[in-house]
Amino acid sequence: MSDAKHEPQTARNAPIDPRLLEILVCPLTKGPLEYDRANNELISRKAGLAYPVRDGIPIMLPEEARQLED
């Protein structure tokens, strides 16, 4: 993903609005989220899940999230 920032910005990889980040928590743990800009995912360390952002819309559903490997 080293060249992620050189990709043209399409709807698909549109980043999340920073204002949104401030008001979001993990729906399972209600704990904080970190934004992984390169993968366009919201990471919940406590739940071990990465929530995808598709077309600028965060998908805050555990069943749609990627399991983090540790």
Binding site: D17, L24, V25, M60
Partner: peptide
């Protein structure tokens, strides 16, 4: 409109009192 999110209304990804 600050944001549109895919979320379960029965398990929201918002903090308390927001």
């Amino acid at each position: 409109v600050d944001g549109l999110l895919e979320m379960d209304a029965e398990a929201m990804a918002f903090p308390d009192d927001g």
